[in-house]
Write a protein that binds this DNA or RNA. Structure first.
Lengths: 247, 247
DNA sequence: CGTTTCGTTGAAGAGTGTCAAGGCCAGTGG
DNA sequence: CCACTGGCCTTGACACTCTTCAACGAAACG
C-alpha cells in the first residue's frame, strides 16, 4: 500500500542524486548547470505536521521544493473565510505567490511531516541570469501553475459535486503515479473539510459523494484510505453525465 | 461618462511615451533599460471585436501587452464546458499560459476592438537575461497572476452569488480607476453570460442579483451601463453579511 | 481510557439552476 | 421612416443540488 517503486531513504544533499530531479527545478540540466543549481539549494528545512512553512504576511525570501511530505496552501479573506488553493507533494515548488509583493499571500502548512529544499530567491535570480535553461524552466513552472489554476477555476465554476470529486481523485491518482506510487490505491493526507474547501463543497457533501462512489463500485473508501476500482467510471463522471449502469 | 483623464489618442511607438508604462512591463526601468525593452516590442496587432488573439492549441511564441481594448480568456474542458478565467484591460499582459507547454491552453478573445503590443517570447528571455530589473518584474507579473487566481478560487469556492457580484464590480471599479477612468460609472464590455461564466453563476442569476443591487440602491444598471452608488455597501456584502438597512 | 478530532448519515431548508415567456436595443433592408 | 430580425437582458415559477443542523460512530492522541 502506497510503497514507492524506488527508495526515498538514502538521499544525498545534491540535486544530481535526488530522485525528484525529473519533477523538480533542475529538469533537463547538464551536469555543469546542475552544479550551479546545487549551489542554490544550500539548506533543507523540516516542517512538522500541522506547522506552517510560511504564513500570509510573512516576508518572502525563498521558494521551497518539496522533498518529502505533503502540504496545503490556503488563502483567507478579510472576513475569515478560508479557501484551500492547492495541495503539494514531493517535487513541487511552493512559495511562488510571494514574488509579486515580496510578502506571502497564503499560508502553506504541512499535512504530514515534511522536508523541503530552501531556494533563496535572490540567488535563484542570479543563477537564472546565467543559466538560460534554468531560467526558462523556472518560467515554465510558473506558467504551469497558472494553467493548473485555470483548471481549478473550471472545476469550481462549472462542475457539480460528483464531477469535482471525480476530477480530484483522478488528479491525485495521476500525481501519485508520476512519483512511483500506486495509481489506484493511496492515502488521503487531508481531511474531508480540506478537500471540501479546495473543491468548494462542504465536508458533508464530500463524505456523501465518496460514499455514493463506493456504493456504485467506482472506489473503495475507508476513512483516509482510497482504492480506485474504475478509473474509466470516474473519467466518465468528469466528462459529463454519470453512467448509470456502471461503466 | 467613462472618459479617460488622459488622452489615449496620440501614442508613439515607444514604451517610454506609453501612458500605460506604469501598469505594463517596463515599470521602474531606467531609460537605458527602457530602450532594451523597446527593442522587444517590435510589432503591434489589432484584434477586431469577436476575433481571437490566440486560441487553445495555438503554438505559443509571444506574450501580448494590451494597449487598448478589452479581452476575455476562456478554458474549455474536453466535454465542451467553457469557463471564463479572466478579463483583460489596457496595461495587462496576456498569454502567460503558453510558456509552460509552448502551446496556449486558453482562448483569448477581444470583447471590443483591441490593440496589443506583441512581445516575442524568445527575445523576452534574452532581454531578461541581461536586464535584472526587467527579469524580476516579469517574475512579479507572473506571481501576481497566480495570486489573482487564488483570489478567484476564494470567490468561486466560498462566496455566494451576491458576494461574487459585489466583488466583481469592485474589482472592475478599481481597475478602471487605476487607468484614469471613473471609479463609479462604467460600461460592462462583457455579456451577462460571460460574467456568469467567470463567477460560476448562470446568466439569469447575474441578472437577478444586479437587479436586486439596483433595488437596494447600491448601484444603477441599465443594460451594460453601471453606476456604483454605494461602494461601501458593496464592500459590506463582500465582507460578509448584507447590511439590510442601506450601508 | 477518556478526550478530541474526524467521518458518516438523515431530514429539512436555502440558494441557484432550469425552463419559459416577453421586453429592449442595434442593425438591416424595405 | 418603419418593420423586421437576432442578440441580449429581465423576470417568474418550479425543480434540484447542496448546505445546514443534528446525532452518532470511529479513529487518533495524550
Amino acid at each position: 500500500m502506497n510503497a514507492p517503486n524506488f527508495s526515498l531513504s538514502r538521499l544525498k544533499v545534491a540535486c544530481a542524486n535526488c530522485n525528484l530531479r525529473e519533477l523538480c527545478l533542475p529538469v533537463g540540466l547538464s551536469l555543469a548547470e546542475l552544479e550551479k543549481v546545487e549551489e542554490l539549494v544550500a539548506t533543507r528545512r523540516k516542517v512538522r505536521r500541522g506547522d506552517a512553512l510560511f504564513r500570509a504576511g510573512d516576508r518572502f525570501d525563498a521558494l521551497y521544493a518539496v522533498r518529502l511530505g505533503f502540504l496545503k496552501s490556503t488563502v483567507t479573506s478579510s472576513d475569515g473565510r478560508e479557501q484551500v488553493t492547492g495541495f503539494h507533494m514531493a517535487g513541487e515548488l511552493v512559495g511562488l505567490d510571494g514574488i509579486g509583493t515580496e510578502t506571502h499571500s497564503c499560508d502553506t502548512v504541512a499535512l504530514e511531516d515534511t522536508e523541503v529544499c530552501v531556494i533563496p530567491y535572490q540567488r535563484l535570480e542570479e543563477v537564472a541570469a546565467a543559466v538560460p535553461v534554468l531560467r526558462h524552466h523556472f518560467h515554465k513552472v510558473m506558467s504551469r501553475e497558472i494553467v493548473r489554476e485555470h483548471g481549478v477555476m473550471l472545476l469550481l465554476g462549472s462542475m457539480h459535486a460528483e464531477e469535482r470529486l471525480a476530477a480530484f481523485l483522478l488528479n491525485l491518482s495521476q500525481r501519485f503515479e508520476a512519483r512511483g506510487y500506486s495509481r489506484t490505491e493511496f492515502v488521503l493526507r487531508m481531511t474531508r473539510a480540506e478537500i471540501g474547501s479546495f473543491l468548494g463543497l462542504k465536508l458533508e457533501t464530500v463524505s456523501r459523494v465518496l460514499s455514493r462512489f463506493a456504493q456504485e463500485g467506482l472506489i473503495e473508501v475507508n476513512q483516509k484510505h482510497v482504492r480506485i476500482l474504475k478509473t474509466e467510471g470516474l473519467r466518465a463522471i468528469v466528462a459529463g453525465q454519470p453512467c448509470p449502469g456502471g461503466q
